[in-house]
């Protein structure tokens, strides 16, 4: 167990014991290799199971709306931004959440490791950081990969990786390897295409969608009580998973969460059919930044992007 983990466990226990929070939301070891799972508890004994490692991939702020009472939540940089964004949107009162900021050295993208090794994750024995390399052990043999090759695209272009809004910061913020250009390489590929090619690309991607709505359900920014996609009068999109409606659903979802999405990458990771949703969300982040110099979840006092305006704003597209 790392020092950080030790500290996290004792702090979390203390918070529950002293009654400063009603719940702790953190991560515990998952039931599969290299997995973690959300731990949501009000029992101080459970805090001994809290973990911090390169596989803590859920954005736990999605649970804040449903636990009730005051919650102590383990937050990485992106999670903390999501929390701030929820506060901006008045979905959450700052005093109802106790943010336990944790250093994030980046999350290891198991899909990338699978691609690099040609194996599935359950066939790999061990993955661990060795300095700025990931040491992957398979059948006793060890291979090392530079961090840049195994970090998730989100982590490569994460800014800032350390939580800026917190009540307690545990541990030192580790040296995170970032490479924004590498992180957006898929976007660059798409930008180089013609509009027709891009449309064909997305059409093909969304042909696989089974409309399980995991992308929406894991998204902290998707907090509507009733999603437009489930309206029946009128039915904005067909409930049938046709590519056309799958595409409309996701395009609108992305536009609706513009300025709220912190690019935690949960939607893409949750997607069971591997639709590269992050290539949409990250691009949206860039558009918002370019047009309005706005970055989601960086200022809890700021009005939400879509609730604000400046009288002088680019309108070269308006006749």
């Amino acid at each position: 167990m790392s020092e950080t983990e030790q500290k996290l466990r004792s702090e979390a226990r203390d918070l529950l014991e002293k009654g400063r929070v009603n719940h702790i939301i953190g991560y515990e070891a998952g039931s599969l290799k290299f997995s973690t799972t959300p731990l949501i508890t009000s029992d101080k004994e459970d805090t001994d199971r809290l973990v911090i490692n390169p596989f803590i991939n859920n954005n736990l702020s999605v649970f804040l709306g449903e636990v009730g009472g005051k919650a102590g939540i383990v937050a990485r940089g992106c999670d903390a931004r999501s929390i701030v964004s929820l506060i901006q949107d008045k979905q959450l009162a700052r005093e109802d959440v106790f943010i336990i900021g944790v250093p994030c050295g980046g999350i290891i993208d198991l899909d990338k490791v699978e691609k690099l090794t040609g194996l599935d994750r359950d066939e790999i024995d061990d993955i661990a950081w060795q300095g700025d390399k990931a040491a992957v052990t398979i059948g006793g043999a060890r291979k090392e990969f530079p961090a840049k090759e195994v970090l998730t695209d989100d982590c490569l272009s994460c800014e800032p990786p350390d939580p800026r809004e917190y009540d307690l910061l545990i541990g030192e913020v580790g040296p995170l390897v970032t490479d924004g250009e590498l992180g957006r390489s898929k976007i660059k590929e798409l930008e180089a295409m013609t509009p027709e090619q891009r449309w064909e690309f997305w059409k093909s991607e969304f042909s696989r969608c089974i409309r399980c709505y995991a992308c929406r359900q894991v998204c902290p920014a998707c907090f509507c009580n009733r999603c437009f996609s489930e309206e029946t009068e009128p039915a904005w999109i067909s409930p049938l998973p046709r590519w056309q409606d799958n595409l409309v659903f996701q395009a609108i979802r992305m536009i609706h969460v513009a300025g709220r999405c912190t690019n935690c990458g949960e939607c893409e990771r949750a997607c069971p059919v591997n639709i590269p949703l992050r290539s949409l969300s990250k691009k949206m982040e860039e558009i918002v930044d370019e047009l309005f110099h706005y970055r989601a979840g960086t200022d809890k006092e700021a009005p939400p992007l879509m609730a604000a305006y400046q009288p002088e704003e680019a309108e070269d597209f308006i006749r």
Partner: peptide, 9 residues
């Protein structure tokens, strides 16, 4: 059920 996100996967 606490950690279930109610998706359809």
């Amino acid at each position: 059920s606490a950690k279930c996100v109610s998706c359809g996967i």
